[in-house]
Design a protein around this nucleic acid. Structure first.
Lengths: 120, 120
DNA sequence: ACCGTCGTACGATGCTCATCGTACATGACG
DNA sequence: CGTCATGTACGATGAGCATCGTACGACGGT
């Protein structure tokens, strides 16, 4: 069951920050969100760690900037943010993104940063 | 057979503007190229028409701006430009992009502009 | 109650870049 | 050879935005 309270959402035990319905999200906004190098790094870190907060993410910018990037990613539908105590844990909306834009996130995460590595 | 002359390339009958090897292209640059709404529209038009020139593409910007966008798309590895007479015909590097970033271009082109259409 | 941590809001700043107008080189056409 | 179209280079301009510092509210631990 899911109820809305003041723009937020409560799902079982967790409270989530408001997030857009992916059906109403344009791929242009998603691409614009993923275009920034810091945000792309955040997406990669979230894909590897599962969850991440404003201070736990290892990116070369200040906390307030990370907060701004996580807000951008959330408003574009890329991540969902869960409130636990005093911290906010964000995670990729992997399944929903795969349903709305099949192959997009997978191809981005699978892509090596630059040239392909020659192994063996 | 392919030879390089002054940065350009000659392939059978056609001469092509210099373009990067996709193995040396970072996905961040590609995403940044596709993030602009006009360039995304150009990509969609090229996917539909196969080829397009600076004046044939129906976008709401001036010719010099279209030229700038096509240059950006070419330098990021998204399109290839062929010289024929006085015009330059650009096309998507569909096959090469699919090999380098599997599923990326497909997912972008398959995505509807906003919400999914309910058919039937 | 006190203090440290966490995240955000806000204003300021500086840089990137999309856009345009213009000028110019090139090729097609008569 | 003159004329027109095509595309690009270049400079100017304006807007968007990434970044930071600071202040503030909320929560947890002691």
């Amino acid at each position: 069951m899911t109820i809305r309270v003041e723009g937020m959402m409560r799902d079982s035990q967790d409270t989530w920050l408001p997030q857009p319905d992916l059906d109403e999200v344009d791929i242009g906004e998603v691409l614009q969100a993923l275009a920034d190098p810091v945000r792309l790094q955040i997406v990669r870190l979230l894909a590897a760690a599962g969850e991440g907060s404003c201070t736990s993410l290892d990116v070369p910018v200040k906390r307030s900037t990370v907060s701004h990037h996580l807000r951008t990613l959330r408003e574009s539908g890329v991540v969902a943010t869960r409130l636990v105590g005093n911290t906010r844990l964000s995670r990729l909306r992997t399944a929903e993104l795969e349903e709305r834009f099949p192959g997009l996130l997978v191809s981005i995460l699978a892509a090596t940063p630059r040239a392909r590595q020659l192994v063996g």
